[in-house]
Design a protein around this nucleic acid. Structure first.
Lengths: 371, 371
DNA sequence: GTGAAAGCGCTAACAT
DNA sequence: ATGTTAGCGCTTTCAC
């Protein structure tokens, strides 16, 4: 007789009991079918008779059954998850990137495990280990160190990997980057085009690839403008790319004789600090000093004056990286590729004065400062 | 004979072969010990003779063995991971919170699965499902909707849970919040204390609890200052808490007759927008209009003038939530608790004019505007 | 269309 | 100190 359960698969548990989670077996018992049938309802419902299927579905909701992804993964061999290793969750550049990644991965049914290393190699190490234990199918990462061996090693142990914002050793890995030299060139060329001839470049250490590349681009722009890079660009080094460092650097910039007519910063945070320092000294931007940032983070357009900046396609960067990973995971014949995005110059009032504040006519374009 | 392997546990796999991952069994074969011994080396090394242990360790590194957390979890019944569900990864408030959580959880050997819902109930639903499938031991979450039933349901299915920045139904769940009414009161009281009598409050919809609470606090401050809340505080409603909305609101604020002497914003982004709009119209902050934000996000102190704001202890909020979760997970007798943090007023130049720019003497405190 | 059974990689209790 | 063994919850042939 159907109605007589031989074993209790009770969803209404004994109160006080630490309630065991329902398994596929409990569902089978309650629906009075076999274990395999429940699995079929879960994975290939079309194989199961509608009536049976419904009974199983009811049993599932009655018991509050939720499949165990551990058991699933163990049996099926795939975790349907990927690891994302970034340098800093608190940095808007990376969070935009993550959104891009999430957008495409979630669509394909993958879960993201996000790891923020705070640029520490040991934290990175721990996280990579954890991701490997979780058998993530792939990893998207911005390496904390120059040395890529841990990543190449991981790749050789069979974990598919795509590098973010970091070129890979040719042919060994896929990578998605932005052309930072081009970005530096865009920024500097913009300033030279406006007539500036003495530019301060507030930059981070050359050990950071992005900083080195942007510097290279800026110097290229100088040469292309027929200038001597050493004369036209005066580099002010800061240890880290923060607003505090920018403010400190502004003092050094303004003391310099002859005073630079423009400041170019390695990122928007530095520019924010410079802006604060400059304004505090009673100088006007861009009339007394033009200012340009890098990254075009969300608040840049809202500053007064709005900050000219170089935009990186952060969301697309993430989405593309995810796409490459999916391609590689799909198993279709795959050649490691590097995708390089082009940065874009976003011109605003901090260099041209041409911002158009609401309800007030735009001031005339600032005259090019005398060389 | 030891040296004669009966089966190949070769780490040097056949090239072209999709290389199977080494299992504990491969390690045992290579180290010529039993499966259980390898497990012991992994989990209770003190039980294994040093010499044997070393042989196993060598075999582990030779084979590139990495334990499968799926199998581990299946057997051991614990996933050593928790889920963190936030509204928006791109919001600095949440990323600081996450850092706080990560800080304490990683110390205790837990992995974090971060989920950003973008305030969508359906995404939240999907994520909760996924977390449950992963058998996370607990969930820290900021619910996307007012309705907490999905969370309470989850809790009743045995997943430990702590609510973030959201009070819980009494005794049903743990929760960690900041006293937003108090924060609103602090901000408004500060302005009243400076002599302001006509304050514009740029606020989001009352359906957002934080907005409603901050409003309530502001009105309480008015009453405590012996003022009529309706006269002293003029609310300007915006649909979302963004800089764009702040800029738009600034126009409305300035058109009002008599013009308010101060603006209080429901968050720093709104304040940033207001600042931009106000400056664009040629008004000075705080001389013509004082401005105060909420959240004290990173860039606020770097604005010109530096923004007075109400700080929320974001990191501690996260760390405390993680602590509550750990306590509950530890199985020790536990009563659901609500921890309420006190916000703090961070006074800067945008209300007092007393900022002290580097290398320049501080201007005298702005005189209180006439009532 | 449904059920029985093998086994994914690991842990822990027990035997030696 | 080391080996043997029974599952954890699930998927997936393969019979029926």
């Amino acid at each position: 007789m159907r109605g007589t359960a031989t074993r209790v698969a009770s969803p209404a548990q004994w109160p006080g009991e630490p309630r065991r989670r329902a398994t596929i077996r409990d569902v089978a018992l309650r629906a009075e079918v076999s274990l395999g049938t429940v699995s079929n309802v879960l994975n290939r419902p079309e194989l199961v008779a509608p009536e049976t299927r419904q009974r199983v579905l009811d049993a599932i909701s009655d018991t509050g059954f939720v499949r165990s992804s551990a058991a699933h993964q163990l049996r099926a061999g795939k975790s349907r998850s990927i690891g994302v290793v970034i340098l800093d969750v608190a940095n808007p550049f990376f969070t935009e990137l993550v959104r891009g990644i999430e957008h495409t991965m979630v669509e394909h049914g993958y879960a993201l495990v996000l790891c923020s290393t705070d640029e520490s190699a040991s934290r990175e190490q721990r996280y990579l280990r954890m991701l490997e234990e979780h058998r993530v199918e792939g990893v998207l990462a911005t390496p904390a160190e120059r040395d890529l061996t841990p990543f190449v090693a991981l790749a050789e142990r069979g974990v598919t990997k795509v590098l973010l914002d970091r070129p890979a050793p040719a042919g060994r890995l896929c990578a998605v980057t932005v052309d930072d030299a081009r970005g530096g060139e865009l920024a500097a060329a913009h300033l030279f085009g406006l007539g500036h001839r003495r530019i301060a470049f507030v930059n981070g250490p050359a050990t950071i690839r992005q900083c080195a590349d942007r510097r290279r681009g800026a110097r290229r722009a100088a040469r292309r403008a027929g200038l001597d890079a050493g004369d036209a660009i005066w580099e002010v080094l800061v240890p880290s790319l923060t607003a505090e460092q920018g403010e400190a650097a502004s003092a050094r910039v303004l003391e310099r004789e002859p005073r630079p007519t423009a400041v170019m910063c390695a990122n928007d945070l530095l520019a924010l600090g410079v802006l604060k320092g400059v304004v505090a000294r009673g100088l006007r931007v861009p009339e007394d000093l033009a200012l340009i940032g890098y990254d075009d983070v969300a608040f840049s357009s809202m500053l007064s004056p709005a900050l000219t900046s170089v935009r990186q396609p952060k969301f697309e960067l993430g989405a593309t990286a995810a796409g490459l990973l999916l391609e590689e995971l799909s198993g279709s014949p795959h050649e490691h590729r590097q995708v390089v995005f082009a940065p874009e110059l976003e011109v605003r009032a901090s260099t041209t004065g041409a911002g158009r504040p609401v309800g007030q006519s735009a001031p005339p374009s600032a005259a090019a400062p005398s060389g």
